[in-house]
Design a protein around this nucleic acid. Structure first.
Lengths: 338, 338
DNA sequence: CTGTTAGCGCCTTCAG
DNA sequence: CTGAAGGCGCTAACAG
């Protein structure tokens, strides 16, 4: 009833369908596809034709199962709405795509629980490597990774152990605050939302710097756990101005908040930077376009993705990590808002 | 040499490792995990303990191979840098996560070739469904989908055949232009970048509307294929003002460009909307925050994700699509920029 | 260069 | 409710 030259009605063409069609053995088809130079050009051609005629698409599950390599890398970022992580993803993808690795991209919504859940889900794919943003947050997540035994590279911050690529969030926060101090500001505020590890560390850097000049004052800090947004930036500026009307500079934990703060100043007729200097963090594309252009910390997020991918590739290949902790630095971009 | 109660050194714990550990058969472990109510509570408990002790994580490849269901859905969007698609992804994820589906998320960079390549790669995972943005661009992509025989839902625009969820880009472009006409503008420009299907359709709508009042003029259109960005918005405004100094309103094909145009007007001292009205498309978060607040078309992108997921779920379940073409509409949001 | 054999880890029968 | 046998599609290891 069934024609052996054609794929079974029950599903798609398989390797043996192709093999039968090309009158070779299955393994030869496998080789023609994966290591073409190990197959004579004659058979290769016949096989290529069969593949095309049957519309054969290999099955990764079967391949992964048999070869014990999934050619898959799991990547977890806090949010896809944040351009910072999307730039990082692009760097990863640029580096991993050419090697045939496929990315399992997931966002955690800045939640440790979601992170663990997604991690578990992705580990079921037996990824060849895992890329994480920051530390694995929960005990469970760390246990999962330990059991899995896959190479892991952590991105964005620096840490004491394991492989990681990033820069010192503390130093960056410190550097930006120093810049404001050098501009002569003494009542410098820190406005933050989405209080993740990195935002906290930037706050640390800020506090370090203001303390050095005795300029620390709890009223100068506005921090809320809400998701960051431009709108929130305006709102938090209002709150800040209420609790510390004499502040003369604002360090926003990210650019989005800073934009919102600038817009709010425009509406209130507050001169930036004359009456109030405003600085952000990350140097997203728009920060150079807004009026006044935003002073901010440029972060090497794309490069972090590239380097993390390279590090992971090396780890997958079993190469000893020459420098497991890669500090890619940051740079202060001074524009008109300060 | 090897203790049968422990996973082999060569790899991670398998179902039979767990089975041995709990002194039951492998299939019972499988059932305890997938259909717990088909296993006595006693065995279930023993199995749960074994799972925990061994740190067992199921292997999706093996499961997919044996069950012929991958519980995976492939999603292709043009870009992750565009908040529009990220909002759509969120809608999809919200709907599909609870069912245990895992998303294979990929971006095409607005390229038809990349789309086909990614599609092929994702089909190797034997996804239970595919979510596409717009039409499958290439002949090859369409052939792949036809061969694969998986349910496909297309998002964002409307189309004649197959399952799709979106709204009429033409009508939206028309509606926005009508609004500008009703405001009394007669020299309305269309500024566009990233010329994908949707941007072109919006342009169609624009042209329809201006033609009705005899206001069409090629000098009023500035369109470049470059990736859209805020910076580009400013640049294109400059170009427009040069080739049509008398234009009195600008319809930007997306909000990013409109922001850039507004910033450029601020720098040039052009009054918005007094001298020049500016409108965008999509209603991203920032559009309500900028000064002047941006008039734009609010698009139901999150809802599109939700509805697309629902449609796909139904199609996977083999349910006949009651309404295969779902028009979710759009709405005009009039703010201060017009 | 090509083929055979066996098995990856799990689930679908079909039995009890 | 539990288990035994077989196979999903592919590739490793060995043969020739």
């Amino acid at each position: 009833m069934s024609d052996p030259r054609h794929p079974r009605a029950s599903g798609r063409a398989t390797l043996s369908d192709v093999a039968r069609h090309a009158r070779v053995s299955a393994i030869t088809v496998s080789r023609a596809l994966n290591t073409p130079d190990k197959v004579s050009s004659e058979l290769r051609e016949r096989i290529e034709i069969a593949v095309r005629e049957l519309g054969y698409v290999p099955d990764r599950s079967a391949r992964a199962l048999a070869s014990r390599q999934s050619f898959t890398v799991a990547v977890l970022v806090p949010s896809l709405s944040n351009a910072v992580f999307v730039d990082t993803l692009r760097g990863i993808s640029e580096r991993l795509d050419p090697f045939g690795y496929q990315l399992l991209i997931g966002d955690t919504g800045y939640s440790a629980e979601v992170e663990e859940r997604r991690l578990r889900a992705y580990l079921e794919h037996r990824p060849d490597g895992v890329l994480l943003t920051g530390q694995a947050q929960t005990e469970g997540a760390r246990a999962l990774l330990a059991h899995a035994g896959v190479p892991v590279v952590r991105m964005m911050d620096l840490s004491a152990d394991g492989l990681c690529v990033g820069f010192s969030q503390i130093k960056a926060g410190y550097a930006l605050t120093r810049h404001l101090l050098e501009r002569g500001h003494r009542r410098i505020a820190y406005v933050a939302a989405q209080l993740d590890e990195r935002v906290r560390l930037r706050g640390e850097g800020y506090r370090c710097a203001v303390r050095e000049v005795g300029g620390d004052d709890p009223r100068l800090e506005v921090a809320v756990p809400d998701p960051s947004s431009v709108h929130l930036g305006g709102e938090l500026l209002g709150r800040l101005l209420q609790q510390a009307p004499d502040c003369d500079a604002v360090f926003c934990c990210n650019d989005d908040l800073a934009w919102g703060a600038i817009f709010e100043c425009q509406r209130r007729g507050i001169d930036v930077p004359g009456r109030l200097a405003i600085a952000g963090f990350n140097d997203l594309e728009m920060s150079a376009c807004i009026n006044p252009a935003l002073t901010t910390i440029a972060t090497p997020r794309h490069q972090i993705g590239v380097a993390a991918a390279d590090l992971l590739l090396a780890a997958i290949a079993g190469e000893p990590p020459a420098d497991g902790q890669r500090d890619l630095g940051f740079s202060l971009v001074v524009r008109q808002s300060t």
